[in-house]
Amino acid sequence: MAAATLKVCIVGSWNWGSAIAKIIGTNVKNQQKFTSTVKMWVSEEAVNGRKLTDIINHYHENVKYLPGHKLPENVVAVPNLSEAVQGADLLVFTTPHKFIHKICNEITGRVPKKALGIIHTEGIDKGPGGLMLISDIIREKIGIDVSVLMGANTAREVVAGEFCEATIGSKVIQNGILFKELLQTPNFCITVVDDADAVELCGALKHIVAMGTTFCDGLHCGNNSKAAIIRLGLVEMITFTRIFCKSQVSTATFLESCGLANLITTCYRRSDCKVSKTFPRTGKTIEKLEKELLNGQALQGLETSALVYQFLKHKRLLAKFPLFITVYRICYEGTPPTEILTCLQSHPAHL
């Protein structure tokens, strides 16, 4: 008897969800391991007087979040979250991390315990020990194994078929390999590693470093100064991850796409860079600029910086992280942005 094919559900339809939907929808047509229809949960909204799900299912395009890119016809937009995940074997979470608790609460008990998940969600959350990984929230609430997808890539470049790399971190390596089969293409090359927590932390901590580099841009510093911030930031990312993770962390993980390459991509190309670039030249707070410039989106490094600061303060480890702490103090305590350069001069950190 042939093994049952695996049903896939994409939880989230923003730009990354739609980009991944294009990859998965195309891949499952050519593999017998996966069911040919892919469900994609869409948080329903009206676009030009029509439901977004109707537009996606009729025109096969997410005109709101990824316009100009056709989705495979086997990708079906579903407005009801519980209906979308019903019976799914593989769940691909692509939602912003602020929605994870609400999503998990809604689908708890509706997802088979044998199901597997993977997240492409950058961020961290408050937890009992000060910080909690998004993957751990899903594991705890839904009770399934969760892998992590991170890398030096942007949704629009991926969906356009430009060459990109990515890393899957998985505590159960064969689960990571399964998701690699689902997601890899000739131009979206994936490596699987077992440092899942390190892979996930790379995706969160890089935003603190990116804020530092864009303060540097706002001060009209050159690439040498920016490179110094990236170097110091990578050192602090590695040091923090080793403190946070209970298992041993390999330095090699930070040389994968999820680490250094992802950090560089974020520091040199981010839509929200305009906030921290503008900040040194105005008397406005970061929070005010965030509201004025980002059209309702969140500045990811801001919340992450605060959570990391509180974690390190509780652990009495502030002195080990001069860059992380300087970024926090610029954002929240009125420290002049020029202190980002003083930080470099005073703390030539090494591993």
Results as ranks from 00 to 15, higher is better:
Met1Gln: 05
Ala2Asn: 13
Ala4His: 12
Ala4Ile: 11
Thr5Ile: 08
Leu6Val: 09
Val8Pro: 05
Gly12Met: 11
Ser13Gln: 05
Trp14Asp: 07
Gly17Ile: 07
Ala19Pro: 06
Lys22Ala: 02
Lys33Gly: 03
Glu44Val: 10
Lys51Glu: 00
Leu52Tyr: 08
Ile56Tyr: 00
Tyr59His: 14
Asn62Ile: 04
Lys64Ala: 10
Gly68Ser: 12
His69Ala: 07
Val76Thr: 07
Val78Asp: 00
Leu81Trp: 10
Glu83Asn: 12
Ala84Glu: 03
Val85Cys: 11
Val85Phe: 12
Gly87Cys: 12
Leu90Arg: 11
Thr95Gln: 15
Phe99Gly: 10
Ile103Trp: 11
Pro112His: 08
Lys113Ala: 06
Lys114Thr: 11
Gly117Asn: 10
Ile118Lys: 09
His120Trp: 08
Glu122Asn: 15
Ser135Cys: 14
Ile137Leu: 15
Gly143Leu: 12
Ser147His: 02
Leu149Ala: 10
Leu149Asn: 07
Met150Ala: 14
Met150Glu: 12
Glu157Asn: 15
Glu165Phe: 10
Glu165Asp: 12
Gln174Asn: 06
Phe179Pro: 13
Phe188Tyr: 15
Asp194Tyr: 07
Asp194Ile: 13
Ala196Glu: 03
Ala196Gly: 01
Leu201Phe: 05
Leu201Asn: 02
Ala204Pro: 08
Ala210Gly: 02
Met211Trp: 01
Gly212Asn: 06
Thr213His: 02
Phe215Glu: 03
Asp217Trp: 01
His220Asp: 07
Cys221Lys: 06
Gly222Phe: 00
Asn223Pro: 04
Ser225Ile: 03
Ile229Tyr: 03
Ile230Leu: 04
Leu232Glu: 02
Gly233Ile: 01
Met237Gln: 00
Thr241Ile: 04
Ser250Ala: 13
Ala252Thr: 12
Thr253Asp: 05
Leu255Trp: 07
Ile264Pro: 02
Thr265Leu: 15
Thr266Asn: 01
Val275Gly: 00
Lys277Met: 06
Lys277Asn: 03
Thr285Asn: 09
Glu287His: 13
Glu290Ala: 09
Ala298Phe: 09
Ala298Asp: 04
Ala298Asn: 09
Ser305Lys: 04
Leu307Thr: 04
Lys313Ala: 15
Lys315Phe: 05
Lys320Ser: 14
Ile325Leu: 05
Tyr328Arg: 08
Thr338Tyr: 05
Thr342Glu: 03
Leu344Val: 07
His347Arg: 10
His350Ala: 12
